[in-house]
Design a protein around this nucleic acid. Sequence first.
DNA 1: TTGACACATTCCGATATCGGCATATATTGA
DNA 2: TCAATATATGCCGATATCGGAATGTGTCAA
Lengths: 113, 113
Amino acid sequence: MARSSTTADVFNAIAEARRRDILDTLIAGEKPVGAIVTDLSLSQPQVSKHLRVLSEVGLVTSRAEGRRRLYRLEPTHLQPLQDWLTKYEQAWNERLDRMDDYLQELQREGETQ
Amino acid sequence: MARSSTTADVFNAIAEARRRDILDTLIAGEKPVGAIVTDLSLSQPQVSKHLRVLSEVGLVTSRAEGRRRLYRLEPTHLQPLQDWLTKYEQAWNERLDRMDDYLQELQREGETQ
DNA sequence: TTGACACATTCCGATATCGGCATATATTGA
DNA sequence: TCAATATATGCCGATATCGGAATGTGTCAA
């Protein structure tokens, strides 16, 4: 047996810094591969391969325009990440609440003394 | 040259499904290693190693209690992820806005005909 | 049809990562 | 001190991943 993580989910897709860079540059809008290559100073095959991974998890889609391929961001496919994070927001808020309770308790103790 | 991604940042730390499982089980509160092992049916070394990675990026902290080690979730260290996601929320909303504009335009055209 | 351009794919070597197993370390209790 | 318990670490083999270089594929323009 060996590693069990794959590139087959959003979490792994965005684990790679270059892939996040590519997504970041696509926020500005649809772009052909060549534009990404010059924007980020990466090699063309490198960009194509990363785009493939991103496309497999749905984070980007592409359409052909002549001999160019325009890639577009699909931000809704970040939903699994957002959903996962939401659970921790709650944990975070609960900690703040407990902290708040504690502070108020301290304050009441101060008043009664 | 070879792979450039490391286990040294939050994005990579949560890319591993088991590590997300471990974080999930810690939402309920501080736990010793053994509890995580039985909760998730993983081997003890496996859990210890994943905890090490999580601890290196600050997502968990530990304190000794006798011969046990209690691990605690540090949800605030998910901030980089949250920050990164926020940019895409904006892109997502802008798309919705454009969609809305488009729909209203369609509606106006319908009225004038 | 041919050449140039844009991009995708394949093959490769280097390396990182995962899990299993064995073992080290530390703490407790007898 | 010694055995038992709880956890961490080291070593290993299998495999996944990355980047580079070369090459394949498709499209346009002359």
